[in-house]
């Protein structure tokens, strides 16, 4: 009895030691990340202050913060951020809807998908920035053009990956639906769609980033507002602080959008 007790105690502490070890490791990873970040900032700032780099071209953390404040108070930065966010989310949602609808149609008709395949592959590998001038001529400058640019970057890849995901369902699972007296439509609703949730989520993750890329390209060429416009405007008037501030804001937006989808993925994880 006594022997047993001590053994449990030892085992418990081993388990605790393991858990603590893992936690320590995680903490170390997080702190290393923070150290690199602050080291970079410190290096950047000191290089700028000592004149090692020209802060006119390379800016500096302090100037970025000053510029951020200035933009926020005087140049309605929030509107610019809001516009870029809105355009990105709009293109993302449209890409998602178009992708789902097209991939579904392709899945239902194998003839249609074989006909469409070469077109999709070519359109997907085409550099979409080449299309931007066309969009400006066709649609003018403004929100519609920018959203279209955002869609054009992500939509073809999205159709291809969703359709590939749909087609990778085990054929026997579809046979099962037929043996139960179901139709192709039942097979899609009961098997293909739920089976493809992981693929759909990972496609969404890629698309939100691509939509942002497309929107910024669009704003470079055809906008009066938005972070892409601020970058182009800043470079034209040689305000590198403005350019770098906008780039950092884009980083934060990209991270935020990615985390949003990841949260969704976590909530669904384990169920599919």
């Amino acid at each position: 009895m006594k022997k047993n007790k001590t053994r449990t105690a030892v085992e418990l502490s081993r388990q605790e030691a393991y858990v603590q070890g893992r936690k320590r490791y995680k903490r170390r990873i997080t702190s290393m990340r923070a150290v690199i970040f602050f080291l970079f900032l410190a290096l950047w700032q000191s290089a700028a202050s000592t004149g090692l780099i020209d802060s006119f071209f390379f800016s500096s953390p302090v100037q970025v913060i000053q510029c951020f404040w200035e933009l926020l108070t005087e140049k309605s930065l929030l509107t610019h951020i809001g516009i870029t966010l809105f355009e990105t989310l709009a293109s993302f949602l449209l890409v998602f809807l178009t992708g789902m609808v097209c991939a579904t149609l392709l899945w239902f008709s194998s003839g249609f998908s074989e006909v469409a395949e070469p077109y999709l592959v070519i359109l997907n590998s085409l550099p979409k920035s080449a299309l931007a001038p066309l969009f400006i001529v066709w649609l003018g400058t403004g929100t519609v053009t920018i959203i279209t640019a955002g869609i054009s970057v992500a939509v073809f890849g999205s159709i291809i990956s969703l359709y590939t995901g749909f087609s990778q369902v085990e054929p026997e699972k579809i046979t099962l639906i037929y043996t139960l007296g179901g139709t192709k439509r039942d097979a899609f609703q009961k098997v293909v769609l739920p089976n493809s949730i992981p693929v759909i989520l990972s496609t969404m993750k890629v698309n939100i980033g691509l939509a942002l890329v497309g929107v910024v390209i669009g704003e470079f060429l055809a906008a009066r507002r938005g972070l892409g416009y601020l970058i182009i405007y800043g470079s034209q008037v040689f305000q590198m602080h403005m350019v770098i501030t906008s780039i950092i804001l884009l980083c934060l937006i990209a991270m935020g959008l990615y985390l949003l989808i990841q949260q969704m993925e976590r909530r669904l994880a384990g169920r599919f």
């Binding site: 699972k173 089976n195 599919f272």
Partner: peptide
Amino acid sequence: GYMLQRDHLFEW
């Protein structure tokens, strides 16, 4: 009723 080789129960 047709019972296939594998159960193919859906995890979702």
